[in-house]
C-alpha cells in the first residue's frame, strides 16, 4: 500500500456507534486533505442536519449534506442526507434516490460504495467502521474487486462489532485497523493522487 498514491476519493460507512467514531475521525483530517470524503452514517429518517452541522463545526474540512448533481470536490466531506440513498455518477457528481431501503437502511452504505466503485475504479478507498448490521460488506467487496483499497475497523475496537465483522469475513480487506490507526493513516493523506 505504501506505494499507492493514486486514490481519488474515500468512502466511509458507519452505523451504530458511528457518530462517535466520525466525531473523532473527521476533525483529525487537515484542511489541506487532498481527497474528497463521502460518508454514509445510518440515521433515523426524521433526523435533522444536527450531525452535519456539528461535524462541520469540529472539522477543518468543509462537512456538508450531499446535494443532488453536486460535483465532488477534494477537501470536502459529503454526508448522505437522512432518508436518501447517496450515489456517485461516473462524471463524479452526486445523485440522491428514495428507492427501497437496502439492508433495511436508507441511506445504505452498499449503494454509495457500489456506485463509487463504478465511478472511481481502483482510485477509491473504502472504510467500514462500527455498526450493528451487515450493510457495507457487499459494497466494500465491490471496491476491492475494482482494485480499490479497503480498510475495516478492528471489531474489538468498534462500539458495535457486527458490521466490521461481516465486512472482514466477506472482503478480506487490505487493512484491519483500530480507529486511532485509521486516523493516523488517513491524516497523512499521502495516498491521494495529486
Amino acid at each position: 500500500m505504501n506505494k499507492r498514491k493514486d486514490i481519488k476519493a474515500i468512502v466511509i460507512g458507519a452505523s451504530a456507534g458511528g457518530l462517535y467514531a466520525l466525531k473523532k475521525l473527521l476533525p483529525a483530517l487537515p484542511a489541506s486533505f487532498p481527497c474528497p470524503v463521502l460518508v454514509v452514517q445510518h440515521l433515523s429518517p426524521h433526523s435533522d442536519n444536527y450531525m452535519v452541522r456539528m461535524l462541520d463545526e469540529l472539522s477543518p474540512l468543509v462537512v456538508k449534506e450531499a446535494d443532488e448533481k453536486e460535483p465532488v470536490i477534494p477537501g470536502t466531506v459529503y454526508v448522505a442526507p437522512p432518508d436518501y440513498h447517496l450515489l456517485v455518477e461516473e462524471d463524479f457528481t452526486l445523485s440522491l434516490s428514495v428507492e427501497e431501503k437496502v439492508n433495511y437502511s436508507r441511506p445504505a452504505i452498499d449503494v454509495l460504495f457500489e456506485t463509487a466503485a463504478d465511478a472511481y475504479g481502483r482510485h477509491l478507498m473504502g472504510i467500514i467502521l462500527t455498526g450493528a448490521n451487515a450493510d457495507g460488506a457487499n459494497g466494500l467487496l465491490a471496491v476491492k474487486k475494482r482494485g480499490g483499497f479497503t480498510i475495516v475497523q478492528q471489531p474489538e475496537d468498534a462500539e458495535s462489532q457486527a458490521m466490521p465483522k461481516a465486512a472482514i469475513e466477506l472482503v478480506k480487506p487490505h487493512k484491519i485497523f483500530t480507529l486511532d490507526e485509521i486516523i493516523t493513516f488517513l491524516s497523512k493523506g499521502d495516498f491521494c493522487s495529486k
Binding site: 450515489l87 434516490s97 456506485t115 463504478d118 465511478a119
Partner: peptide, 9 residues
C-alpha cells in the same frame, strides 16, 4: 435518467 441509478436498477 441519472445513470448510476438506472445501472443499479
Amino acid at each position: 435518467y441519472s445513470r448510476a441509478h438506472v445501472k443499479r436498477r
